[in-house]
Design a protein around this nucleic acid. Structure first.
Lengths: 234, 234
DNA sequence: CACCAGATTAAACACTCGTTCAACCGCCCG
DNA sequence: CGGGCGGTTGAACGAGTGTTTAATCTGGTG
């Protein structure tokens, strides 16, 4: 898998200008954040600022193009990768591949800023996790929850949010070479505590949970949990 | 508890100009992010942009003053609040108090941007969690971990990062009134899955953890874990 | 009262930003 | 060959930014 673009995106081994600009923008946005100027991106792509708005209409149009591009690649790569249901593994694997690393960085920046792309990605991760957890329950390796949808959202937000925070604090410089190593370090630090928590829990007795269940009789019944298995929650 | 400032910060019931500017900056930075202009902040405080740099040297000086202020308030309030060791509870309680809400918002922005304040706050939360978990282990309510330090960092990053991500996506508008309600909603959505995970874990059997422990014989020994016990707990 | 130091202001400065505009170049079509 | 036409450029514009500077106002002190 050496070629990234679709059939119409390259021409005789040389990328079309618009695609080159878009890719340069993804890399620059990932490195410097979205406050990066059009002139900087233009210089990276070897063109002028005016040409960017000629092709994309505006800076916001360029961002939209970048968002769509990243989403497209993420969807394409997701099918090839083993996922842990939260997307962390997928991002980790993609970060190892030199060509995908800028997109992972762009995605992290996008989540820092909180745009539509970030929201959509999170929803994808949540629905992935839903399927993954449901499968795990069916296979008997995952304990059923009193509120599966809530647990799914909880786990997705925890996994994604902690990763985002970790990179915000430890990888603020955002050097492209150290990035895969940082990812590996993050997952190494994570693995043991996560596995411990997932298999053994944290608390010794059930009193806190039982107290909570006494006060809040809210969680949906097991029946509604089973009925949810086909579609997505609101 | 109605007065926020120290003795030298107010004069006859009216805040000194520098403090008024600083507080306006905290509120404006929290609402609009750090790209907010000096003139906007100046207008909020009823002064001119030049006066701000006269008092604080530069925009960065203003940010440093805001950081110190927030850190000071956080430290002061921490002693009065019940904490769950991750700081989430502390922030939730402070967000309910109208006068503290802007600071919580500022803090979230600070973590989005990843400055020194954010790093310091996280370290505080981690050391708090360390003490809290150690006390829990000693009291026999928290299971000991094979690597307590790693688990502490893991839990702190999970709690803080998921909260940050949640607010980035759900509270991007950052309206000051809806903020306490958002916080309550976040914790309501969280409580059940968190308690479930903490008391029952996620996985049915130990195979994944045991496999990992076979491959990585790294975690510090129980002896080194026990030796840590005196330093941090208070 | 005279005077000075600090608070405060309005204007200007130097810069970057996204965007616009007129011109130019090279290619394809007639 | 001629003529468009999209790709591309460089310069300019206007609105922002943080910061500087000179002038004004104000309050306390000798």
């Amino acid at each position: 898998m050496t070629s990234l673009g679709g059939a119409s995106e390259e021409r005789g081994g040389e990328l079309a200008t618009a695609s080159r600009i878009r890719d340069a923008a993804i890399a620059r946005f990932g490195r410097d954040g979205f406050r990066a100027g059009l002139r900087t991106i233009a210089a990276d792509a070897g063109v002028t600022a005016g040409l960017i708005v000629h092709h994309f209409g505006s800076k916001d149009g360029l961002r939209r193009a970048c968002d769509e591009r990243v989403l497209e690649i993420m969807r394409r790569e997701k099918k090839k990768a083993l996922t842990d249901g939260t997307g962390t593994m997928l991002l980790a694997q993609m970060a190892q591949v030199e060509q995908f690393a800028p997109m992972v960085l762009y995605l992290l920046r996008s989540m820092q800023a909180g745009g539509e792309l970030a929201a959509e990605l999170i929803e994808h991760m949540i629905s992935d996790a839903e399927a993954y957890l449901s499968a795990g329950e069916a296979a008997g390796v995952v304990r059923p929850s009193r509120d599966r949808a809530a647990r799914t959202r909880y786990l997705a937000y925890q996994a994604t949010g902690s990763m985002l925070l970790w990179f915000t604090l430890h990888g603020g410089d955002a050097e492209p070479e150290k990035f895969p190593a940082l990812f590996r370090q993050y997952m190494d630090e994570l693995a043991l505590p996560a596995l411990e928590l997932f298999t053994e829990g944290l608390l010794v007795d059930r009193s806190m949970l039982d107290e909570y269940l006494m006060y809040v009789p809210d969680p949906p019944s097991a029946a509604s949990n089973a009925a949810d298995q086909d579609g997505t929650a609101s």
